[in-house]
Design a protein around this nucleic acid. Structure first.
Lengths: 273, 273
DNA sequence: GGGACTATTTGATATGCATCAAGAAGTCAT
DNA sequence: ATGACTTCTTGATGCATATCAAATAGTCCC
């Protein structure tokens, strides 16, 4: 659902290479899709190096070519910029090619609730389908690029390619299941369990993208973490400090190093105590 | 997505007529679909009196007939019975024809989290699509009947009827948006706001089904409400008592009468204070 | 590089809800 | 109808996290 070789096209003044998720790093796992010369790539899923995350597997060459019609264009979003806002008319889904987003809903009185953090290969905009307008804000937490997929195209192609249809359904179902998990977290867990769950989830998703299992850079503030986890930023900070004191993690601002993955897992399951 | 004239087929020993949501009541709004003789109805969406809630509008007669193939069969579930359980293989969606359900996920240590309450016309099982197995338990809170819709049928028909395809997408999107709202509730609201939001939501959904706006019967226990809202059953009870003391509602066990709808709404928006 | 801003950390105190407990009301089965 | 069970209500107390506050660290912008 988006094109490959992102790194080649990003100019260095846009991001800090050593910090950005959208740059390849030493820890990245090898990709099956070989790197290719950087010029002359059209917007196409068929040669996107993230297609294993984004698209259904097992498509025929023919279907792959059809699929390239799904992405109409690409769009860059600067850090802090809105990809879409609550109330905007809904016409397209977005696949993240590079960068990192948060989605949040805002109540009438202005309280903001972060409903999720999205990274490369993940789809945004599903909330807009039901009422033909977006129901949340999608804000880039670092400079980002997305594939614009007009929802009409997605639906048309889904009718022609059953495997794609199933894939779209799975993506929506996955989001429902994810939110079920967040409900469990918010309703039942204590601060330490929530933060452990949050870190483990981020690590797992980053690992699937070729990043280290024992290190990560938080793209969001303590306040945004707190919003997502239903706690105040001070509590997030205190809990980080506690994990640090207990030798579970090392915290250097937004850089987190996991020292004891098992202990973190144990806290998450602390349920079991 | 399910058949009509439920009331005619339910035998009285199964439910208490004066209490059940699955019985017509004085307060019900008139339906556009006329009541018909009770015998000889086959499983068919085309003559279901809930199709306005359940199905896309504006289908041609032809498409309507096609759609009748979607529901393979119907299934009765006794109060307390499982429609499906976490881990069960996923093959079908279910549309509630009559009755009332809860869905809940259970963490490894056994903590139960109610993720939703479902009533007539609503679809269950969407959580199962992503991993081909169900991710939660669906338990009947009163004797119920559902339409069994093999997911293969749904997908096949969706490819043939674009309006149905869009409808399925909307249903999934609606669930995502609903869960966004629950996240906001759990992360940001205080006990009174949560319970007010809960009551208003139930009232609104029941009203759409022809029930009174000022009265409802809770099908779930205080504990189940508490689980859904992220609070303990004692707090639910206390909050009901407080609303009662404040003249906002009248509580007689599971029977709730709304005395001051505006005040309830104000508490929900209490955010604004 | 320096000043203004934002983000983070840490401490002290307050509070909303959980927990523990016990009794009342309602429901079910025989 | 009667006893056993579940559900609900209400009170007393405790605790986890919110709130308030202030200092520190980091970042951005001229």
């Amino acid at each position: 659902m988006f094109n490959a070789n992102a790194a080649h096209e990003i100019t260095s003044h846009e991001i800090h290479p050593q910090e950005a998720y959208n740059q390849p790093q030493d820890q990245r796992l090898p990709r099956t899709a070989p790197m290719q010369a950087e010029s002359s790539f059209k917007v196409a899923c068929s040669n996107c190096n993230l297609r294993e995350l984004c698209l259904p597997i097992g498509l025929s060459t023919d279907e792959m070519n059809q699929l390239d019609g799904m992405v109409a264009t690409r769009k860059k979003v600067k850090q802090g910029g809105h990809l879409f806002s609550s109330g905007d008319p809904f016409t397209t889904l977005y696949a993240i090619r590079t960068g990192f987003f948060k989605t949040c809903v805002v109540s009438e009185d202005g309280r903001e609730q972060v409903t999720g953090f999205q990274m490369a290969g993940e789809i945004m905009g599903l909330d807009g389908i039901v009422s033909d307008k977006h129901n949340c804000n999608a804000i880039a937490l670092e400079d980002a690029e997305v594939c614009v997929m007009p929802f009409n195209h997605v639906e048309d192609l889904s009718r022609q390619i059953p495997m794609l249809q199933r894939h779209v359904h799975k993506i929506m179902s996955r989001e429902i299941v994810r939110e079920n998990g967040v409900m469990m977290l918010l309703a039942n867990m204590r601060a330490e369990e929530r933060l452990a769950a949050f870190l483990l989830n981020l690590l797992q998703r980053l690992h699937a993208r070729g990043y280290s299992k024992s290190e990560l850079i938080l793209r969001m503030t303590r306040e945004e973490i707190g919003s997502y986890l239903g706690m105040k930023l001070e509590t997030v900070s205190r809990t980080f400090s506690k994990f640090s004191d207990d030798g579970i993690i090392e915290v250097k601002q937004k850089n987190i190093r996991i020292l004891d993955h098992e202990k973190l897992q144990a806290i998450f399951n602390a349920s079991t105590c």
